[in-house]
Design a protein around this nucleic acid. Structure first.
Lengths: 350, 350
DNA sequence: TTGAAAGCGCTAACAC
DNA sequence: GTGTTAGCGCTTTCAA
């Protein structure tokens, strides 16, 4: 038998628009019209087409549609780490918003690796109409090199200057200021910061705000996971801090666990603050005081800004969102500030 | 006046292979060969092509490639809820494994909504070479109707009988048995189960195992989120249970928080067990005893099983993975088993 | 209202 | 080695 495989449906061949057209006794154009909801088709034919189409189990190839239409109606979003609850929430809101406008979202996870991120960006770029870069970790120069010119793009939580893309930012610095105000009002003088990935722009913003408002703060390179918070928390205690600000809630969870293991009471002897306000922050003990970042709004606005570029405007707005401090149980009065602790701190701080 | 379609909106027409071919003075076929790493091209030409391609910022359209090649080298995975840390871990491992074989993964989140899930499945099916359904929530009949015949598919954590797809399962029942053994060895007699979504097959498996091993258990419909665990935990306490098994770790977090609010000591007065072993389980207090599901392996094996189908149109294997009980601090001796509690339990249980 | 035909951007025989 | 020529499955003029 020739190479052509059995068209009667039993074989593995994909059902195409041509199959439907043939069975229904119409042209492919008509099938296309019917299935795309154009009302310029004879109801009788339309009915027949629909029925045959259903009977054959026909589903138009999105790939072919994409090629023919010149647009895939799909956008990509690349995130550093889906396992960090911050990102799924952004992605979900983004997906819902885009979905309402008939766009699908494909998600890619770079696993906090700048190299992988660059590769993913290029890869995803080849198959989407637009791109959202969530807190990208790659260097600005690399980013600039890799973001395809002409591909509508929005970048969140990352200032790229001069802007190569539209941006939606959360003012992390403001969040940090609120934390510092809260902590100093409680009497804390010696404060440690468990810093996030050096590649994180949010981390840089927070660090900047910290050093501006509180030049003497102890900065401890940490990371973005609970494991790392657990590892770093002891150093904060040893540095004589009475309060520790964590890069994110996950890190704070780790710190909380370590402090407990160390027998350091929270908030009695040590206050702990996180960033993000992930759902679990309200369920750990003590409930975590944290800076709530508007994750859902970040997702929604990202889509809106992207959509505007998709439409026509090459411009691309620049949106800035505000975080809010959520005070729970993990912060309290700095009753632990003694001469002794300060002395230790001084020594440790150099 | 749309003279020429410009889907990218933001100005410049897309750079195509034809542009590169023209500038480089070769045919499109040659450009294609060079860029796809065929070594049958004159090195001089190849060099020129590569240079022109880079200078023009050419990136082949994955859409067009997909059409021409008859395969997109992309697979889809649909999950019930990316915000549940269980799924990102599966997805990550799956992505890594697939990536090694040159496949991209697109992720879709149904938000625990069976309707949305069905829609997503159909949508994603139109643009991928294969599909992984992670713990699908839709009914079997619907699933069967919607999964495109001939599309390689693997289904995790969901028995579909007769199998319409290959499957990779985690034996939830075994996990439940291990939990019950652990708990009864500790002396617990009155045990409550905070059940997951009724649409969850894992939940059904656990429930089945529970009712088989422990007919008198108190079952409290709950859900899959901490919020819901928080809401249900009081009922478990009121039912006189000395141990509560939670559908997943997130639910357990909620239960832990509620029990604390209620002044019920864990594990002193109440033991708490979760399922999944998400990273945070080891950092909450008390550290959560839980059934560890091999998430990464689930992802990897799913890819392997799918890949086998991608190759030939074989039936598709059926893999079964084993969970392991991880005992931490949230379970302990049932010192709270008194005549009184048993009496209350008896009454509540009917 | 419908069909024929020309692509969308790319790859893959098949010649030369 | 390299170019020519068909498509991949679909949409969309343009005629009829």
């Amino acid at each position: 038998m020739p190479a052509k495989r059995d068209p009667s449906g039993a074989g593995g061949r994909r059902v195409t628009i041509a199959d439907v057209a043939r069975k229904a006794g119409v042209s492919r154009a008509t099938v296309s019209r019917v299935l795309n909801g154009q009302d310029t088709v004879d109801p009788v034919l339309a009915g027949r087409v629909r029925q045959v189409s259903r009977r054959l189990g026909y589903h138009p190839s999105a790939i072919a549609q994409g090629l023919a239409r010149g647009a895939s109606h799909t956008i990509g979003v690349v995130v550093p780490d889906l396992a960090n609850p911050f990102f799924p929430e952004v992605v979900k809101a983004l997906t819902v918003a885009a979905g309402k406008d008939g766009f699908s979202v494909v998600v890619a996870d770079s696993d906090e690796d700048p190299e992988a991120e660059l590769r993913l960006i290029q890869d995803v770029s080849r198959r989407v109409d637009g791109l959202v870069l969530c807190s990208p970790r790659a260097g600005i120069a690399d980013l600039r090199r890799v973001v395809r010119k002409g591909l509508p793009t929005v970048c969140t939580n990352r200032m790229v200057d001069p802007p190569l893309t539209a941006s939606v930012m959360i003012d992390s610095g403001r969040g940090m200021q609120a934390v510092i105000r809260h902590l100093t009002e409680l009497g804390h003088r010696r404060i440690a910061y468990l810093a996030g990935p050096s590649s994180s722009s949010s981390n840089a913003d927070r660090l900047g705000a910290l050093e501006r408002s509180l030049p003497g703060a102890v900065v401890i390179p940490t990371g973005s996971k609970s494991q790392e918070g657990y590892a770093s928390a002891a150093a904060a205690a040893e540095a004589g801090a009475t309060a520790v600000i964590c890069f994110n809630d996950l890190v704070a969870f780790g710190a909380l666990a370590r402090l407990r293991a160390l027998g350091v009471a929270v908030p009695g002897e040590m206050s702990v603050v996180g960033f993000d306000d992930i759902p679990a922050a309200d369920f750990v003990h003590p409930a975590l005081t944290t800076v709530r970042l508007p994750k859902a709004e970040l997702g929604r606005r990202s889509w809106e800004v992207l959509r505007d570029q998709l439409g026509d405007h090459g411009a691309g707005a620049s949106v800035r969102l505000e975080p809010t401090l959520v005070v729970r149980e993990s912060t309290g009065k700095a009753i632990g500030v003694t001469e002794d602790a300060v002395a230790i701190g001084e020594r440790a701080g150099g």
